[in-house]
């Protein structure tokens, strides 16, 4: 347990020591999105009856930054350690693959939730957003950052260089988070894109998270919970199996 806690704290400390980049920078970029979009879209018809566009947008933006930061934390830490070679210090220890996995994932959760909370608190200053079902907010925040943090571990195990990591960021994480309904309701999409969105687990994460605030969503939060929960399990299982085998870590 102590070994696991050490690795977890080390991973938290790692991003905390550079919080200017890891917390403040994402906060500013998210607030810029908010500023621009809420202004441009203010005169559009409400997405849900009686819900302002800002109130619709803010949970989506907060979740998008949580997903991106949770991914960035585990993936960049692992790739950095692999490139510089200091991952050996972890690999030489008796830490099991379970401890390794959860230490990295939970540090991702901490960073993701921290960035998300700061975004939400700042947004609350300027816009009135309800929080109708707080429990759903917490559940989806945790599941989302676990999912994305796991994906980061997987990418970090696989990637051997920084540019391979950038490919994951640009070709997988960014499209999945942008096309997840953070900016719009998928009901407003043409049917092809609407159907495609339903294969994106990040869509359910955002939809469920938004339900926690607004009390309305594109699909039922229970359906989202089922899908996101299953995605988490499948991804954890895969990543743990790879870690156990030593794939790309113990050559």
């Amino acid at each position: 347990m102590r070994g696991f806690l050490t690795l977890f704290f080390k991973e938290v400390l790692r991003f905390w020591k550079v919080s200017l980049q890891t917390v403040l920078a994402p906060l500013i970029s998210t607030l810029l999105y908010l500023l621009v979009f809420s202004h441009v879209m203010a005169d559009h018809a409400d997405v849900y009856p009686g819900v302002s566009y800002a109130a619709f947008l803010i949970p989506g933006l907060a979740m998008m930054s949580m997903l991106q930061n949770a991914f960035a934390n585990s993936s960049s830490s692992l790739v950095q350690s692999k490139v510089t070679g200091n991952l050996v210090f972890v690999l030489l220890t008796p830490l099991s693959h379970w401890e390794f996995y959860w230490a990295y994932v939970l540090a991702s959760v901490v960073r993701g939730v921290l960035v998300g909370s700061v975004v939400l608190l700042t947004a609350w200053f300027f816009f009135a957003i309800p929080a109708r079902e707080p429990l759903w907010i917490v559940v989806f925040a945790l599941l989302a950052t676990i999912l994305s943090g796991s994906l980061g571990v997987l990418a970090g195990i696989w990637a051997e260089k920084f540019d391979q990591m950038a490919a994951w960021q640009n070709f997988i994480v960014l499209p999945l988070t942008f096309l997840s309904g953070a900016f719009y309701s998928i009901h407003s999409l043409p049917s092809f894109w609407n159907t495609l969105s339903r294969f994106n687990p990040f869509f359910y994460v955002i939809d469920g998270f938004r339900y926690g605030f607004l009390g309305s969503s594109d699909v039922s939060p229970w359906e989202s919970l089922l899908i996101v929960g299953s995605a988490c399990l499948a991804l954890s299982w895969t990543t743990l199996a790879l870690l156990r085998s030593g794939w790309r870590l113990r050559t």
Partner: peptide, 16 residues
């Protein structure tokens, strides 16, 4: 990311 002492304390922690 760490100082000499932190490095050793962390390594010590990994071993429980």
């Amino acid at each position: 990311f760490f100082t000499v002492r932190e490095t050793l304390e962390i390594q010590s922690g990994y071993f429980g």
